[in-house]
Design a protein around this nucleic acid. Sequence first.
DNA 1: TTGTATGCGTTATCAC
DNA 2: GTGATAACGCATACAA
Lengths: 328, 328
Amino acid sequence: MPERKRDVSLHDVARLAGVGIGTASRVISGRGSVSEATRRKVEEAVSALNYRPNSLARAMRSDQSHIIAFMQPDLLNEFYDVSADVIHRACVAAGYQMVITSSLTAEEEWESFRWLADYRIDGIIHVPLSPTLPLPVTMPIVQLNRVSAHRPINAVLADERGGFDELTTYLLQQGHRDVLVIIGEEHHSSTQFRLQGVRDAVARYQDVRLRVSAGEFTREWGYQAMNVAVEELPHAVIASSPRIASGVIQALNEMELRVPEDISVVSFDDPDWFSFWGPGMTTLVPPLHDMSARAVDWLTRLIDGEEIASDIVHLPCTLRIRGSVGNR
Amino acid sequence: MPERKRDVSLHDVARLAGVGIGTASRVISGRGSVSEATRRKVEEAVSALNYRPNSLARAMRSDQSHIIAFMQPDLLNEFYDVSADVIHRACVAAGYQMVITSSLTAEEEWESFRWLADYRIDGIIHVPLSPTLPLPVTMPIVQLNRVSAHRPINAVLADERGGFDELTTYLLQQGHRDVLVIIGEEHHSSTQFRLQGVRDAVARYQDVRLRVSAGEFTREWGYQAMNVAVEELPHAVIASSPRIASGVIQALNEMELRVPEDISVVSFDDPDWFSFWGPGMTTLVPPLHDMSARAVDWLTRLIDGEEIASDIVHLPCTLRIRGSVGNR
DNA sequence: TTGTATGCGTTATCAC
DNA sequence: GTGATAACGCATACAA
């Protein structure tokens, strides 16, 4: 075992400055009062020794890590990139460091909670993977984009139900009466909301044929679902995620079906390529910026000890109309 | 100030189990030997009290955090998503937790190093933002995808020079003699490599016109550069990143120029949409998986104290041919 | 094998 | 204002 190289500690600083360790601590942490003369002496010692406080010791003593974790299920999903970016900026602005963690499975998700707690992380912004996972009560948590079954809970969501209602209504207004909606895992809270929104809209019209294909939020599933639906070509298809949309497009390409002449397509979220793919993708855009900013604000208040009632907040989506929907 | 709620500590476990604190520690950390009987007693106490070791105290004592940080410059850039994912999986497999951090500016990058060091993170996989930033010597670092000027250094890079040579050669073989290459920030090490590769290829042919537009790795820049180049339409354009490519495509769309009939386009990296955009994007694909896996392997060895000579490793890219290049 | 005591680097409490 | 001193929770050397 390699001998531990002792750090430069407060002890060393105090000794070089010729003061007590308590005084040195007061200068560095900024709490308590010290005379201007000693303050300068200590500060000189600090820079002479290149001293840096040990955050582990600090966090242990003060029970504050000044770290917020963004816990997300899938690093490969660009959907969360903008959330991560916004959260990061907001955290920095609020004086926190931000780290991202990921969990591929429910077990890993649980494991993540454990180790974040073990490191006394100040709080977590959490995109739940498993809807039924019990949540640790020892630290502040705000859920983002999806909400688990656990109650009480704090969560910031997009109003997907309202949004999908609007999106579907738009389709119906353009005269489409045979619509296929392709969704992902049914146990996700958001899947339920989206489907409900579609149904809300359909219920207001007569003679609408609605087909629902539930599977995964993957390109493969979009491709597959589109392929089986093609026998009776729907007027319009609602791809409930960009990945699903890409599968749909791939299928349509192969069958040489044209958008929007032969079939209309709409989606959810707004990756770059939606704007320059073919006719442009008409899509429902969740307010990722607002959601993320709000989550951080909420979480930092919680950390500061504010008494806030648990709540689930829904923020409105925006319908972005481009060229992928035709008229009938 | 809220009174601190004391954690369940080793002390409590030892007391309940009726053993010394040292013994309890030995059971939990797994080091040293204990009799089967006491081991069970301690383990019972652990689960009875729901005890969890405090990682801060542990890390402080043992100088090991079991955490690896992936430090990247831009959370919005999907390029790093797959690296993050691979690194994450590799870290978990190697018994580490992985966190992602980001720094928007050189100052923040420096700041990140500081606080990661202050928390005694075990090691860092680092995508440098500022090429000239001095690196901390107190912890193991392996750079990924880009390399800073600091020496000695450990870095895993794509062989972008060789790759762009191959990519350009392909273009030339198809008969293109007027090529425009659009690149990003010139001070990035990778920009230099890519440009060099293009020049290597061009040097082997006669009568090639080569235009270079250096700007940013953004969609806007791709759009802009394409717009100015259009006055003398090049045979082929090399967009050195997907974002630049998307700008190029946007410009081409607006001018109603067709790929590959009117102009050929190639790029670097391989986001999903490259495969289903128009004719499909012919592109040079860096070995992100191998690079990331290699970086983790390297870093964990470093952490384990293996004496490895500093080195810069270049891994070969793959040319993925689709439909965006025509014949002349 | 087991228990005690010491130290890791802080912050907080308390006399002075 | 200042300087000892006691925690924080754990690991380890050492004595038993």
